[in-house]
Design a protein around this nucleic acid. Structure first.
Length: 737
DNA sequence: TGTCTATGAATTTTT
DNA sequence: TTCATAGACA
């Protein structure tokens, strides 16, 4: 029996359809990775396709690695020749060869969010843009959206005519592009945009890659944006053997420019496209799947599909409402500990998913105190830590003297007496002469009014020059060693008394390990190569399933993973769905949150537990949230009736009717949540979800109550005047029945 | 120039 | 609550 006969009929069809455009709508857990890997194997083994001619694009480096491994298992040989990579790293590969066609040097650097912010800050200063009105982050995100839609700075400026605020952003955009170009740097979006540019403007290059990639597969297609779509269309333009796999219900990156119409309109773009639906789920129990389906069906504008499974019914969904986030964390950790103690599962069978990274802290504390191994995915990326960025800035400066940003970052780190005033003199000088900062520093005796600092700058320039010379003949690890030694970076850390210093040194050691590993893996290790390796990694990439720890991560990071036991915590309106999406007038935002919820639920194989807290500290003040609307979208019959939230304490009165007190079964957990009590609320006779009346704004629904210490800050969505925030004692809101 | 303090902003998600 | 930045002062 061939390996393909083990697939179900739909999967087989997907594998055997090798030519022409193909859209595979693959529901959660429907074995899409299996289909993709088998399809690749089939192309190579049965259709005689050269592995060299296959391009597979995945969402993360981790997914890419896994795919290669799995293909390797079923294909005889040649899997290493397949291009399996993320969009970004594929683009970097192309640009490293052809960036010169756009006037860049091939060793361009990649700017991360942090770098972008630095650049933007300076631009705002230069252009006299008031960053109170236009925040750097907001400008950058406007630029990013523009780039994702392939609107360049000029086009943006044309578009902005008349709109003053937009015009200012356009100015910043133009300047930003100039700066990056001058610095020989690209941001994440550029990698995609510039690749498309190269392909569009150079027929021979396009032709080369079209010939090379005769078969293209794109995973997680629902999260691609417009540039990515363009890129794929260009590459597949000749042979049209384009296979995309995705699930519109799992589209959760709209905020990052993902264009859901890429998948919804695939058939319009490629009229001859074949569409195959994979609807059988192999991952979860019936209960879990039913829960997922009952949540997602509340979304409009999705492709019709219904996931089903032959798996057993399984445990019911458990829902718990706790007093506060500490209680919640304690109970979850306790439960995991117990289950593992009883030998029912191992630590790595558990994942705790949350909406925001900040939620991990309380959980971590509990894990530490019970000494249970755990790992947090995400949060502050390793490569974004100060010490790592400092060291990398040294490496970048050595690698690419045009990168002004890195030079500025390290010129006085560790302190060598070159202050901000001197630096800005040098920057000014360089700008006037249209040269790079480093070049200006090299001839710093020509820079006016520097005084004694010129000597110090000379020292810095010399040191970099020495490193640069060394880098020609010593290994990267040795180079790093020298940098740490010569600059006195480690020494400075050691002299600090803070406990943080120790962690920083550990991180630097970790970086050293990564450099050594890179040099061992790579045939031709180069400094540029290492730097780009580092620029495009996500935290999730370094995940190792063979180790036994509980995993903590955001719902976003959980995409593509699965766990026997899943805890979704912080299931509260205002947290998930987030406050921002609740008050937004774009109903689509709630739908995206709902898809996120769907993703979370479908991560669970065996058992799903949802929890929430009555009160929670958010940014230093206490919030009172009611259970998430998503919880109430799940049919009560799917919940475990034995597990209901603890009784309301007698001293807390239940407002309005007492319907809920009859019997506390799963059937009324949900409505129960609505009636929960605000602890110090004797002063307030309304709560979240109630309709209230304001003397000026009329009637509205309370959507949030925050305990600001002295007073409650109440947020109300008024019918006529929209969302308003007010202090309870001033607002004098009256409860409307 | 460097350090200390006060004030303010932020939190939705990330390649 | 925590981090970052601006301003004051040595």
């Amino acid at each position: 029996m061939s390996i393909y006969e083990k697939l179900n009929p739909m999967q087989q069809e997907a594998v055997y359809t090798t030519n022409g455009p193909l859209l595979i709508l693959a529901g959660a857990g429907s074995g899409k990775t299996r289909v993709l890997t088998h399809r690749i194997a089939y192309l190579i083994d049965e259709c005689g396709v050269n592995p060299w001619n296959i391009l597979a694009i995945t969402f993360t480096n981790k997914a890419a690695g896994e795919m290669r491994e799995r293909v390797d298992d079923i294909v005889g040989f040649g899997s290493e020749q397949i291009w399996v990579s993320t969009f970004h790293s594929a683009c970097v590969k192309i640009l490293r060869r052809f960036a010169d066609l756009l006037g860049y040097e091939r060793n361009f650097v990649i700017y991360d969010t942090d770098d972008q912010k630095h650049v933007m800050k300076e631009i705002c200063k230069r252009l006299h843009i008031d960053t109170k009105v236009h925040k750097e982050r907001a400008i950058l995100s406007a630029i990013s959206s523009a780039k994702n839609e392939m609107i360049d700075a000029k086009a943006y400026a044309l578009n902005a005519a008349g709109d003053y605020s937009k015009k200012r952003i356009a100015d910043a955009y133009l300047e930003y592009e100039k700066t990056l170009y001058k610095n020989n740097a690209m941001d994440f979006d550029d990698l995609l945009v510039k690749t498309v540019e190269v392909l569009r403007n150079n027929e021979d290059v396009l032709n080369y890659y079209q010939e090379r990639f005769k078969y293209i597969m794109v995973d997680e297609y629902q999260d691609t944006n417009t540039v990515q779509f363009r890129l794929v269309s260009l590459l597949a333009g000749k042979y049209r053997n384009l296979c995309v796999v995705g699930d519109d219900d799992q589209s959760i990156y709209k905020f990052r420019g993902a264009n859901i119409y890429n998948i919804l309109n695939f058939e319009k773009e490629f009229p001859d496209a074949k569409v195959i639906k994979l609807e059988q789920n192999y991952r979860s129990t019936k209960n879990i799947l039913d829960a997922a389906n009952s949540v997602i069906k509340n979304n409009k504008g999705r492709k019709a599909k219904r996931l089903w499974t032959e798996n057993e019914t399984g445990d019911k969904i458990v829902f718990h409402q706790y007093q506060n986030e500490y209680d919640e964390a304690y109970q979850i950790v306790e439960e995991i500990d117990k289950t593992v103690d009883q030998n029912k599962a191992q630590y790595h069978d558990f994942a705790i998913l949350y909406r925001t990274n900040a939620q991990s802290r309380v959980l971590e504390e509990k894990f530490v105190s019970k000494s249970i191994p755990y790992k947090v995915v995400g949060g502050v990326n390793f490569y974004q830590r100060k010490e790592i960025k400092d060291i990398l800035a040294y490496l970048k400066t050595i690698d690419n003297g045009r990168d002004n940003l890195s030079v500025q970052r390290i010129i006085n780190v560790p302190k060598r007496g070159i202050g901000a005033a001197s630096v800005s003199k040098a920057v000014e000088y360089a700008q006037e002469r249209d040269m790079s900062l480093f070049d200006a520093l090299e001839c710093c005796e020509d820079i006016p009014r520097l005084g004694k600092t010129a000597e110090k700058i000379k020292g810095f320039v010399n040191m970099i020059a020495v490193f640069r010379a060394q880098s020609e003949y010593i290994s990267l690890a040795e180079l790093l060693e020298n940098i740490l030694e010569e600059t006195g970076y480690i020494k400075e850390l050691e002299e600090e008394y803070e406990e943080q210093a120790e962690a920083r040194i550990e991180n630097i050691d970790e970086l050293m390990n990564k450099i050594i590993a890179y040099e061992q893996e790579e045939e031709e290790p180069t400094l540029s190569g290492f730097l780009e390796n580092v620029a495009l990694v996500a935290d999730i990439d370094s995940l190792d399933e063979s180790e036994d720890y509980v995993m903590l991560m955001t719902l976003h990071s959980a995409k593509g993973l699965e766990f026997p036991y899943v805890y979704m915590c912080g299931m509260e309106d205002g947290l998930f769905p987030s406050y921002m999406t609740i008050v937004s007038d774009d109903p689509d935002e709630i739908e995206e949150e709902r898809r996120l919820c769907y993703v979370g639920i479908t991560r669970a194989k065996k058992k799903l537990t949802m929890t929430c807290a009555r009160s929670r500290m958010v940014r230093g003040s206490t919030q009172y949230n009611r259970p998430s609307r998503f919880v109430s979208e799940i049919s009560p019959a799917l919940f475990d009736k034995g597990r209901v939230p603890e009784k309301v304490k007698p001293e807390l009165h239940i407002p309005k009717s007492t319907v809920y007190s009859k019997k506390q079964t799963a059937d009324n957990i949900i409505s129960y949540g609505k009636a929960f009590e605000v602890r110090k609320a004797s002063a307030l006779d309304y709560t979240v979800g109630d309709t209230v009346k304001h003397i000026k704004f009329g009637t509205g629904v309370v959507i949030n109550i925050v305990d600001g210490g002295k007073d409650y800050e109440v947020t109300v969505d008024f019918e006529k005047s929209g969302v308003k925030k007010m202090f309870a004692s001033f607002a004098k809101l009256k409860l409307v029945d």
